[in-house]
Design a binder for these strands. Structure first.
Lengths: 261, 261
DNA sequence: ACGGTTGTTTGACCTGAGTCAACCCTTCAC
DNA sequence: GTGAAGGGTTGACTCAGGTCAAACAACCGT
């Protein structure tokens, strides 16, 4: 199994200097050569259509760990596709409390929260050094008026976000600690698998506090749950490194229902 | 203030029998004459464009209280616009537990959860006798390729759904009972106001259990919170009838932060 | 190599919301 | 009118997860 660190290698950045057909740098960063194209916007497009999508993406920005891709309140103009790295999104309540609403990895889109008000409603923060493609939204809308496949796929991506949120709502609304943690680990495992990494071994990019915020728990509770899972030989935890020993055991936790709320 | 019951009056149903320009029935149910058009899909469209949208909506169905508009697992084909009435959506976990994920009222759209998998992922159930417009999704996509305003507005509606879900996630993740109930009442009040009804007086369409499921609480907890709010002269409750006496008091509850999770 | 900072673990204790149970109020069918 | 069913309220008790505190481990810049 490849280490999931491999994903961080990215194409050369200065891709505007040489003519397209000759520049390896361009080829390496174009959608058509991106190894995430089956997870990302280009899914299902013809080569020709993909090239038109490529043309939209004028900027590919690196975001350093800890930096924001965008912040709540900023004007909305772009959808962002994660080429490499790891992000969290969080919303801030007026009184200072905040909650992580999602963790995003390579191939996933960020920024759709901004469409409705023309302003972003959450913060997107890199949890490791990352690289994102900037997709100007008005041009994406224009292109998706011309390419039906693209239009439909974009609608699917937004819909998937809604369904994902519903899943999190049921997690927050009626699952107990162990179920939340199991669901969290299984979800990460499944997403790493989809990206060609080990389903059983990975590094967490976020702190216990961020996990807790996401799952509606306190960091101590997250820590205790990890320890308990380790005692029960379901996982091995060493700080940020997770090794899932018994994936079916985790799934079993999800299906025995001792409802909470 | 008009009673919010008034919303239930709806146009005649058999609108296909007479030529358009002559049929009052058609005029009464067309988007262009719908008093919800500023809340619903037609927002911002010209008369001409609205007419083209009208043509998509071949079916307007009545849904009896307790009946489903669609169920999880059913193939997806339509987006539904609520003309009158009141719905809940809920998702079912494999083990039988279920959670209400939203309450929808006139002018709001239902069914966007189905786009990503071509299958609905939740149930939509009428909480009172209702009337909905069926919008065939593929034709909506086609039309929104032709009408930029429509396309953009549809994206805004989906985005708003995502932002709404984030709000519910923060509610479930870090608010205490009183904050959840206050948020719930304020949200209903605000939506009734947008529809021209009293911000202070309305009838709940859902049971305490459904409210609890939505807010991640048990029905007894909801009932106790209502009683406590009544003692504190914030509201008057009589079964399903709510009278908000002190809307600022409710807002104040939301901003004093005694976080929970 | 070292001191400070940030993140993690673990224990002891506390409390807000869940559970269980009894009772009441409406509504509706017959 | 009457009985049954569904929904709502209230009280007494319990416990899962939060709080507070202390100690420890990893990381980072100098």
């Amino acid at each position: 199994m490849p280490s999931d660190k491999a994903l961080k290698t990215s194409g050369a950045a200065n891709n505007k200097l040489a003519p397209k057909e000759l520049s390896l740098a361009v080829i390496k960063t174009a959608c058509s050569n991106c190894n995430l194209r089956e997870l990302c916007l280009p899914l299902g497009l013809t080569d020709d259509e993909m090239e038109r999508l490529d043309e939209l993406i004028s900027v590919r920005r690196r975001v350093k760990r800890g930096d924001s891709l965008y912040r709540a309140g900023q004007p909305f103009g772009y959808i962002y596709a994660i080429r490499s790295g790891f992000f969290k999104t969080d919303v801030l309540l007026e009184d200072g409390r905040d909650q992580v609403t999602g963790f995003q990895m390579a191939g996933e889109l960020l920024g759709m929260d901004g469409i409705c008000t023309e302003c972003h409603t959450c913060n997107a923060v890199a949890l490791e050094d990352s690289e994102v493609c900037h997709i100007p939204f008005s041009r994406l809308e224009k292109l998706s008026r011309e390419i039906q496949t693209l239009q439909h796929h974009f609608h699917q991506v937004m819909s998937r976000e809604i369904v994902r949120d519903h899943g999190l709502m049921t997690l927050l609304g009626m699952m107990c600690v162990e179920e939340r943690i199991a669901a969290f680990l299984l979800n990460l495992s499944q997403r790493f698998t989809a990206r060609g990494f080990s389903p059983a071994e990975f590094n967490l990019r976020m702190t216990r506090e961020e996990i807790g915020s996401y799952l509606g728990l306190k960091l101590e509770t997250v820590s205790r749950a990890f320890s308990r899972f380790q005692e029960e030989k379901l996982i091995n935890v060493q700080q940020k490194h997770i090794h899932i020993l018994d994936i079916d055991g985790l799934k079993r936790i999800m299906s025995r229902h001792n409802q909470r709320a």
